[in-house]
């Protein structure tokens, strides 16, 4: 194609652009029905490449991973469905970080409420130091609920995912209580901590003199799930304790370790920690 032809083609295109569009798409009518919920689709069960050589084989691989594979493409781009789903999952992850755990969650399950020194989510995200401390008023609640020198405490913190806590914390906590009961260890009430960083348990340790604290906390959500919870366990925590003294059990969610089974495991772990008087890398 020479220069001349190219010029003509561009000129033609420009003329076409100036002409009014004749067949403008009709305005969509609002039928009152909601669109299908994209996030309900189980991506592990969907293979979207057209004219595939062996789609069944790819599907068998897909069942083993949440990775976004075999989605097909249009030119070099994602298809609309994949693109929208990616944005929906990303939004769910963000929502989980920015939303608060519903008050009914702690009010209905006898979880006394405390809040770290953060005033709101923005401050929580930008000031990790404030997420590890409590003001005078909340300190008083902690002292009153937990008492002095308890053998073990179980606390629940929202952390970076309120979804994770709503989905898993109650089942997990019940299993932990049951497991410890078999060892003759009775837990007192569990606090619910809003705007909680893992280090908040260190301040609680200092305030109560607890021998062992277990904190269930929402993990930073990813695109695979926004419901993953962790348990952090620290023997005799105090502000400034090295992170290496903590033991963590992560990946507690429906596609990872089920909440009750994780709770049973954590109960055993807590019993071992009390026996060996250690946690983290000190626990052999």
């Amino acid at each position: 194609m020479d220069k001349q032809e190219l010029k003509q083609m561009v000129a033609q295109l420009l003329r076409e652009l100036e002409q009014p569009v004749e067949n403008a798409p009709a305005q969509p009518r609002d039928s009152g029905e909601s669109l299908p919920d994209l996030t309900k689709l189980d991506l592990r069960q969907e293979y979207l490449v057209e004219h595939s050589e062996n789609g069944d084989a790819f599907l068998r691989l897909k069942r083993k991973t949440p990775a976004r594979l075999g989605l097909g493409r249009c030119g070099a781009r994602y298809k609309t469905l994949s693109m929208l789903r990616f944005r929906a999952d990303h939004a769910a992850a963000q929502d989980s970080v920015f939303s608060l755990v519903e008050p009914s969650f702690y009010q209905n399950h006898d979880l006394p409420f405390v809040q770290t020194m953060c005033k709101d989510k923005d401050q929580y995200l930008t000031r990790p130091d404030l997420g590890r401390k409590f003001d005078e008023k909340n300190q008083a609640v902690i002292r009153q609920v937990c008492g002095q020198n308890p053998r073990a405490l179980l606390v629940i913190g929202d952390g970076l995912s309120s979804n994770a806590i709503t989905a898993n914390a109650l089942d997990c906590a019940a299993a932990i209580r049951q497991g410890l009961k078999a060892y003759g260890i009775e837990l007192g009430k569990s606090l619910f901590i809003q705007y909680a960083r893992v280090g908040a348990m260190d301040h609680i340790g200092q305030l109560t003199g607890a021998e062992l604290i277990c904190m269930l906390v929402g993990e930073r959500p990813g695109l695979a799930t926004s419901e993953s919870m962790s348990a952090y366990l620290t023997y005799k925590p105090y502000p400034g304790i090295p992170e290496s003294k903590r033991t963590v059990v992560s990946n507690i969610h429906r596609q990872g370790t089920p909440a009750v089974e994780a709770g049973a495991h954590i109960a055993d772990l807590m019993h071992t920690m009390l026996e060996k008087k250690a946690s983290g890398i000190d626990l052999r």
């Binding site: 299993a175 497991g179 370790t257 009750v260 089974e261 709770g263 049973a264 109960a267 055993d268």
Partner: peptide
């Protein structure tokens, strides 16, 4: 299904040490 430890602990409580 993955629930042996939780069920085992629950049974332990009911059947005794």
């Amino acid at each position: 299904q993955d629930m042996g430890k939780a069920l085992g602990q629950a049974l332990r409580l009911r059947l005794g040490p």
